[in-house]
Each structure stands twice: as C-alpha cells, then as structure tokens.
Amino acid sequence: MTNNNPYNLIPLQPTGRNETDSGNTYSPEDMIKIYEQQFLTPVPEDKLTEFLPFLKGFYDIDKNTLDICAVVFDAIADFCIIYNHKVKVGGYEILGGLVKEELAEEEAEKDNEGNKNEEAQAYTLECTRTFFINDVEMPYQFNLFIHGDSYSTLTRKESLLEKTYWFVSGGFEDNLLGHLEDNESLESINEQLASLGIREMDLTTIHEIVDYVENSIIDDDMVDALNKLLDNAE
C-alpha cells in the first residue's frame, strides 16, 4: 500500500495475496469499504480517469478484487450507492392503531359488481420508516391505506426526505393546481442537505433516491406486523 494518499482513502490491512499473487486480498468488511470509497470519494472531473488506477494502486489490488468487492457488497450489505450517495434502510414504527375507513360509494359499487373485495374492509395506519443518507438519519412518515390485498401510501410533508418526495412526485400536480410555492426547490433541498453534511444532489440522484425510498418503506417484517394487526381487527 502506497503512502501517497491525496484522496484521504482509509488505510486497510490486507489479509494476504490473491491466488495468482498479483494483488492483495481483504476481509469482506474491508472490501465493502474499498467499494464504497470507489463511489463516494469526491474526485475533480479532470482527475476521474486517474482515480481508479490510483485506488487499485493504493490498496495493491487488481480488477478482479474490485469485482469481488461488488459481489460482497450486494450480498451482505443492506444499503446501496446512488450516484455518490450511500442510502440505507433503517427500522420502522407503527404509530397508533388501525383506523377503519368507509369506502367511497362508487368504489364499493365497483367492488360488488366485480365480486372483488366485496367483504374487504379498508383501514388507514400511521407509520414511519427511518432511512440513512451517508449515515445521516432521515425520518419518513406516511399514512398507509390498506384495502384487501392492496395498499397505498400518502407521505407527510415535514421532514427533508418527505419534502424531497413531494418535490419529485408532487411537482407536476402542483404545477397544474398552481401550488408550486408549497414545494421545495432543488436549491433549497441542497441547502438543507448541505446543512446536514450531505453532498449536493442533481435531479437524477434525487429521483433515484425517492424511487429507492418508495420501494423500501414496506418490508417483510412490516408486512408480518400488519397482517397480525389486520387479523386482530377482523
């Protein structure tokens, strides 16, 4: 490992040489750190072509080692890297109990005509899920609407992550309704991110993170807990 370290990479202790003795090997935990640094290290644009060879040289690894890092990262880590931002799913909390909801008349008629969900009851439930962006805790509170085997969510507009969701998902609708002043701007979101020590995001990054959040707010553990609540309610 070289002592030259202009990118402030983390010094790590190799566990030995690989099978062809062409590069160092590292523990799975350290391989994840190397993989993260490959994508999370701020690098000037004019240095991008130099950075990867430097990373390999700093840890004395070869291309195969980086490939293994990616496999290990996907296999044992519960977070992902989205355009230079590490996003991790945290725990959930169910706030209060199920609230029985009356279906709109047209929806009930539609169900009866199609003989689907004829006896299904609708409920709402307040929930929160914690996310981490670059290890900064970001709460995400939402109202869960459950009807039969289907569900939908309506997110609050209080925390920064919730405001970011509405910036992405509510922009078109608010534009039609003339409510743009209620939405955050890209500049204001980045100002709030910067105050938390999170680097700037462009529109593509914000869209990817919102998609990740929406796909991750309900997990298997939460589904099991919800099913128990629904069984008790029935």
Rank of each mutant, 00 (worst) to 15 (best):
N5F: 04
T15N: 07
E19H: 09
T20M: 13
S22H: 05
T25K: 03
P28L: 04
E29F: 06
K33I: 04
Q38V: 02
V43M: 02
T49V: 04
T49H: 05
T49R: 02
K56A: 01
F58Y: 13
K63Y: 15
L66E: 01
C69V: 00
D74N: 02
A77M: 08
I82V: 11
I82R: 01
K86D: 00
K88E: 07
C127A: 10
V136N: 10
E137N: 09
P139M: 04
Y140K: 05
Q141D: 10
F142K: 05
S150M: 06
S150G: 06
S152P: 04
L154H: 08
K157F: 15
E158Q: 12
E162P: 09
E162G: 12
F167A: 13
G170D: 12
G171L: 14
G171E: 14
D174W: 14
D174E: 12
L180M: 14
L180Y: 09
N183L: 15
E184Q: 14
E184W: 07
S185H: 07
E187K: 07
S188C: 06
A194E: 15
T205W: 02
E208T: 04
D211E: 14
V213D: 06
S216R: 08
I218C: 03
D219T: 04
V223E: 10
V223Q: 12
N227I: 09
N232D: 12
N232H: 09
